[in-house]
Simulated assay, not measured.
Amino acid sequence: MSRRIRIAFVIDYIESPTAGTEKQLNTILDNLDTEVFHPCLCILRESEWSRSQYKGEIHHADVPSVSSLSFVPRLLGLARYLRENRFDIVHTFHRDGDLFGTIAARIAGIPVVIGSRRDQGYWLNWKERGLRRLIRRFQTHYITNAHSTRKQMMAQENIPASIIEVIPNGIDLSLFSSSTSREPLRAEWGMDDKDVVIGCVATLRPVKDHDGVLKGFAQACSKNARLRLVLVGDGRCRDDLERLASELGVRSKVTFLGKRRDIPAILSALDVGLLFSKSESMSNTILEYLAAGLPVVCSDVGDASEMVNGENGALVPQGDIPALAEGMLSLGDADVRTRMGAESRSRSRQYEIGLCMERFRSFYMRCVS
C-alpha cells in the first residue's frame, strides 16, 4: 500500500485516559508509527477530555443510545465519515464502540473490522450476549490482551483461533523508574519505614472485591501489627467499604486515597501491590506493580499467572480470603520483598511499550496485506 494505512479507533466515551481500556487505547494512539499509519480517534459521545485535551485527529460522532430517535441518522453519519475518509481498518472498543462502530464500518464498506476483548464478560447478560452474536458476523478480526480470554472466546463463542490475535498490554517502563523518595507520601499517610504498606489500585466496584481485600487484611493484621493498607481509587462502594473497615477493627490501618493521577509516585511508596479481582483479562494494575518493582499478591484470574507466581509474589485462588491473608503475611520480610520486587521488574520488560507496538504494527499490516 503506497499511502499510510488509515485506522479509525472507535470508542463510546473517554472521561479520562487513565482507566484500563482507555489507557491502552491512548498508549496505542501515542505510540503508533505515524510514518506507516494514519490514526483517528472516533468518539461516540464527547467529554471534556475529548473536547479539549486530546491533541491527535479526532471525530466526535455524537451517536446516542439506541433508544434515541436520532440514533439511525447519527449512525449513518458515522458510516459516511468512515467511507469518505477512506479508512482501511476500524478497530472498536467497549460495548457501544463495538456495536455502533462495527455496524457503521460495514455500511461504509470498510474491509477490516477489528473487535476488542479486554475483559472476560463478567457483566454480560442475555441481551448483551445477543448483541455480541449480532455483530460477530461483521467483524473480521479480534484482538485480546490475554491468552485465557482467547480460549474463552473460542470455547464460548465459537470464534476461530485464526482471527484472534493476543497482544498483551504494553507499558512505558520509564514512568516507573523514578528515584523519588517515598518518605513524604508515607508520612502523609501516617506511616513510617517500619510499616509494611500494601497498596491496591482499583476502582471501588464489586468486581474488584474490596470486601475480600479488607477481610483478608483484617485476618493478616491479627498476626502482623505492622501491616498497613492503602486503597487507591474511587467508586460507589466507598462508603460501604469504610464502614466494613470499621466493623473489622482495621479502619485506623486503612487509608482511602480516592482517585489519583500520580500512580508511579504512589507505587514507589508501597512495599506490596495487591489485587483481588473476581474477573480480569490482563490487568494493567498488576503490570504497573511489576514495572514499579513491587512483589504482588493477586487472585488467579485471567492471565495473572503469566505475570505472578512464587518467584515474585503470591497467586491465590479467587475469593479465598484465608489464602489472601497468608499471601500478605508471606511478604512481611524485607529481604523477601527486595528479591521478589527485582523479579517483578525483570518480568515487566517483556511488556515494554516498544515490543507491544511492534506487535500491533505487524498485526495491522497483516490485516491489510
Rank of each mutant, 00 (worst) to 15 (best):
R4S: 14
R6E: 07
I7L: 01
E15A: 08
G20A: 09
K23V: 11
Q24K: 11
L25T: 13
N26Q: 03
T27G: 12
T27P: 01
L29A: 13
H38C: 12
E46W: 04
S47P: 06
E48S: 04
E48Y: 01
H60G: 08
S65H: 04
S65T: 02
V66T: 12
L82R: 08
R83E: 05
E84P: 05
D88T: 05
F93H: 15
D98M: 02
F100V: 15
A105E: 08
R106M: 03
G109D: 06
G115C: 06
R118K: 12
D119F: 04
Q120R: 14
W123P: 09
K127S: 11
R132C: 00
I135K: 00
R136L: 07
T140D: 06
Y142M: 08
Y142K: 02
Y142C: 08
A146H: 01
M154L: 11
A161I: 07
E165K: 13
P168I: 11
I171A: 04
S174H: 09
A187L: 06
E188D: 11
D193I: 07
V197K: 05
C200F: 03
L204A: 12
R205F: 07
P206M: 03
D209E: 12
D211K: 07
G212W: 00
K215E: 13
Q219Y: 01
C221K: 14
S222E: 13
G233V: 05
G235S: 08
G235T: 06
R236E: 15
L241H: 09
E247C: 09
V254R: 10
F256R: 13
I266R: 03
A269Q: 11
L274Y: 03
T285H: 05
L294V: 13
V296A: 07
M307V: 15
N312E: 05
G313Y: 05
A314I: 14
A314D: 15
L324E: 09
A325N: 10
A325F: 10
S330M: 11
L331Q: 10
G332Q: 12
D333T: 11
D333C: 06
D335G: 09
V336C: 08
R337L: 01
R339W: 00
M340Q: 13
A342W: 01
Y351L: 08
I353Y: 04
G354M: 03
L355D: 15
E358V: 05
R359L: 10
R359K: 14
F360L: 11
R361G: 11
Y364K: 01
